[in-house]
């Protein structure tokens, strides 16, 4: 899956998950923390991403997720792994 396609779908997931957060300025370099999410929100987000993309994100990869881009990279990597 192409990066922009993944990013587009991810933004959709984020918008649905955090309807009260303004995502207009969100880009690939944005820190996930700008969403103002706590640890429980974070595992929910990962659950939604796994379900929507039909992938599995290993727990050790969670530590690598800091920016939107880092999450996109992991989604891309795991999508390939599935294929």
């Amino acid at each position: 899956m192409f990066v922009d396609k993944i990013a587009f779908k991810l933004i959709e997931i984020l918008q649905k998950k955090f309807p009260n957060v303004d995502l207009t300025d969100l880009d690939l370099n944005s820190d996930i923390k700008v969403l103002g999410i706590d640890s429980l929100d974070f595992v929910e987000l990962i659950y939604d991403v796994e379900t929507q993309f039909d992938i599995e994100i290993p727990s050790e990869s969670l530590l690598e997720i800091t920016t939107v881009e880092s999450l996109v990279v992991i989604i891309q990597k795991e999508s390939r792994a599935v294929v």
Binding site: L40, V43, E44, I46, Y47, E50, T51, E56
Partner: peptide, 10 residues
């Protein structure tokens, strides 16, 4: 098991 929701326990 990986499709069980993280908010299940609370």
């Amino acid at each position: 098991p990986k499709r069980v929701h993280p908010l299940t326990v609370p």
